[in-house]
């Protein structure tokens, strides 16, 4: 797994961004960028090159699903790895995310191992 890539972490809760950052740092990732909602995340994506997007679902302004659809409709990021990390895991949520092109899905609460396993899969 290439840990030199730039990762964008999107969550409206600073707590979750901090937990994910801690896990990613332990895995060796160093280039970490944060956004607290989908709108801010899109501004980051337009302003710099991001290699992996890790996003919550339920956020104000622009949800994770809306961000995913915008990413997949863009020229620059249509093939970018997109990991949804969310408490929203009812069947309909998972179906919508898969249809929108999510790379993988982690349900909160999660262990560090769960994040590591999913990243190994989508960054192969």
């Amino acid at each position: 797994m290439d840990t030199s890539i730039k990762v964008l972490i999107v969550d409206d809760f600073a707590t979750m961004r901090r937990i994910l950052k801690n896990i990613l740092k332990q895995l060796g990732f160093k280039n970490l960028v944060e956004a607290d909602d989908g709108t801010t995340a899109w501004e980051v994506l337009e302003g710099q090159t991001i290699d992996l997007i890790i996003s919550d679902w339920n956020m104000p302004k622009m949800t994770g699903l809306e961000l995913l659809k915008k990413v997949r409709a863009s020229d620059n990021y249509k093939g970018a790895p997109f990991l949804m990390v969310t408490a929203e895991a009812q069947k309909q949520n998972v179906i919508e995310a898969v249809q929108a092109g999510v790379s993988n899905y982690v349900v909160k609460p999660f262990t560090a191992e769960a994040i590591s396993d999913k990243l190994e899969k989508i960054l192969k």
Partner: peptide, 29 residues
């Protein structure tokens, strides 16, 4: 902030179990 996220996670996990009982809920922030 952490209390908000913990509440969010508890809600999400509980709603998954409730969905298995045929009871579907949506949550606010």
């Amino acid at each position: 902030d952490a209390v908000g996220e913990l509440t969010n996670m508890i809600s999400g996990q509980a709603r998954r179990e409730l969905e298995e009982m045929g009871k579907v809920f949506k949550a606010a922030i």
